[in-house]
Amino acid sequence: MMKICGPKYALCGLVISVWGIFQLVLMGIFFYIRSVALVEDLPLDDKTFAKAEEFYMAADSGFTRNAYNCWIAACIYVLTFLFSGHQFYLNSRSSLSV
C-alpha cells in the first residue's frame, strides 16, 4: 500500500481511533444496558406518544439500535486504526531510511 498521509496525520488518526474504539465500545455497552443518562441521545424528541407502552417500545428499540450503531462505529475505528497504524509504520520506516 502506498503512503497517503504524513506522520502527523497518521499519529492523529491513531490517537482518535484508539479513543474512539474505547469510548464507543463503552457507550455501546451503556446503551445496551439501557443507561438512563443516555436517554437524551435517543431519537425521541420530536415524537408524541399516546400510551406509555409505545414510549417504552420506542426507547427500547432506540437503545438497541444506538448500541449497535456505536459498535459499528467502533468496528470502523478498528479499520481506521489499522490504516493509520500502517501509515505510521510506513512514515517511521521512511524517516529512518533517510
Binding site: 482518535i16 479513543w19 470502523i76 475505528y77
Partner: peptide, 29 residues
C-alpha cells in the same frame, strides 16, 4: 455533546454507525 455528538446518536436508520464514526472524530477534535 448536544450540538455535535447527539447528531450522530439520534440517527434513525442502521446507517447511523457510519455517521457516528465521522461525527465522533469531529467531536473528539
Amino acid at each position: 455533546w448536544n450540538m455535535v455528538m447527539k447528531n450522530g446518536l439520534t440517527q434513525e436508520g442502521w446507517g447511523g454507525g457510519i455517521i457516528l464514526w465521522g461525527i465522533f472524530a469531529f467531536w473528539a477534535v
